[in-house]
Design a protein around this nucleic acid. Structure first.
Length: 415
DNA sequence: TCTGGGGTCCTAGGACCC
DNA sequence: TCTGGGGTCCTAGGACCC
């Protein structure tokens, strides 16, 4: 029978940090979000302390210190590299995989016997642990939603769980809907108002009632929970719909010049990524944000512009970004973040030519030279205009580990 | 003092058309 | 004392995920 599997790395960012700091296995470790704002990854030891996911760091700093926890700023260069190694191994061993996030991938598997499937996945788990160095868990079930649920079951145990319909039919009476993938806070609330608490409640409710209240998401959820796939892992490298680059500043600013520098930096980042995926964007948006927890919360602004023709040229985009920024900037507002979003993305080889053939279709030589130099000599060896990262508007990252695997100057030294 | 960033999908409602 | 209905397209915003 065909099953859907999920491979999910345990406490991924924490595990990545531990690969190069083996002394931290068994010790409480957390990783902070960008700007050292909130907790985004916790080791088992920290979860046991009761520190919740997503809590602002400053609220739990003392508690963590008392527990002797090690704190890291996020180090995405490191995490992406480790992620790539995990995904490469999964791909080699399982064939087609669908990478769902930096630390998760779905796949399909023909299961002849549960026992054999378990042995196979346990072997794979050991292999990744040995070759890459991070622990992961596998869940195998008839649908994506159930595979997700299954993967949680053995996180602290063997790390491999196969959920058959027979198992699930026994369990689902007591599983609460809020534990299910895709059911968040707002939906849980709404379900509660309709007296739907457990999976069994949901499944015994009338189909048309579910559809009326929860729309297509409701009917899909019902199907997935009955073991009939309503979502399938897609292996094709689907075109990304949007690319964004945004960051909070360590301190607020009221200077248009500073905001323009930050926006220029994000424009460079986003268009670089656009070029590396061999595509162009038809729409550009910028955002200036204020502190969400201050009286300025509503003073943020966004603005967008449909480009005359799709482009990935940093210079063209920079010009437009500057125009938009000047239009929405308000004097004396303390801005806390800035960002750029590129959307309406099309692959280079799928571009629509306009009727008069007047648009620029050739690749910009200057851009590809800059990309090549930066690839060979390191990030930002060449920047355009003001598009260079500056600490003056940068984020806090006070506990950052080395980029052990992606930067020669930060490689681990042995003596 | 200090509260992330990067995504996707769905829906409601307005503009516009015949 | 009367005020269509049906359709498309677009966008803003909500919800969710990791």
């Amino acid at each position: 029978m065909k099953y859907i599997g999920l491979a999910d790395c345990n406490n991924f960012f924490v595990s990545c940090e531990r690969v190069f700091r083996p002394d931290l296995w068994g010790r409480p470790v957390v990783v902070l979000s960008s700007n050292d704002g909130a907790i985004v990854a916790r080791s088992e030891e920290v979860k046991k302390l009761g520190v919740p996911m997503g809590v602002p760091y400053f609220k739990v700093r003392d508690e963590l210190e008392k527990a002797g926890a090690k704190v890291f700023s996020s180090n995405f260069d490191l995490y992406s590299d480790i992620s790539k190694r995990v995904m490469d191994t999964l791909h080699e061993e399982l064939g087609v995989i669908y990478q769902y996030s930096v630390d998760e991938a779905f796949f399909t598997m023909e299961v002849k016997s549960v026992k054999e499937a378990k042995i196979e996945l346990a072997r794979l788990k050991t292999l990744i642990q040995k070759n890459v160095g991070v622990p992961l868990s596998f869940g195998l079930a008839p649908t994506m939603t159930l595979a997700k649920y299954a993967s949680e079951l053995e996180k602290r145990g063997s790390g491999v769980s196969v959920l058959t319909m027979k198992d699930w039919e026994v369990q689902r009476d007591t599983v609460s809907l809020s534990e299910i993938w895709g059911v968040g806070g707002a939906t849980t609330q709404k379900m509660r108002e309709h007296n739907l608490i457990t999976v069994a409640d949901f499944l015994s409710a009338d189909n048309s009632r579910i559809e009326k209240i929860f729309g297509v998401n409701g009917t899909r959820l019902g199907s997935e929970l009955r073991g009939i796939p309503a979502k399938m892992p897609e292996n094709d490298e689907a075109q990304q719909k949007s690319i964004m680059s945004t960051r909070s500043f360590s301190k607020t600013t009221t200077s248009l010049a500073v905001l323009e520098e930050a926006l220029a930096y994000h424009t460079a980042r986003a268009s670089e990524e656009l070029r590396s995926s061999h595509s162009k964007a038809g729409k550009l948006s910028i955002m200036l944000g204020t502190n969400r927890h201050s009286e300025w919360v509503l003073q943020g602004a966004t603005s967008e512009s449909v480009l005359p023709y799709p482009t990935n040229d940093t210079i063209v985009l920079l010009r437009e970004v500057e125009r938009l920024a000047r239009a929405i900037f308000v004097k004396d507002v303390p801005y806390k973040k800035a960002g750029v979003v590129l959307s309406q993305i099309t692959a280079d080889d799928h571009l629509q030519l306009d009727l008069f053939g007047s648009q620029q279709v050739s690749d910009n030589k200057l851009m590809s030279v800059i990309d090549t130099v930066n690839k060979n000599l390191g990030k930002d060896s060449i920047t355009i205009g003001r598009a260079r990262y500056k600490e003056s508007w940068g984020s806090n990252h006070n506990f950052q580990s080395s980029r052990y695997t992606t930067s020669w100057s930060e490689i681990m030294r042995l003596r």
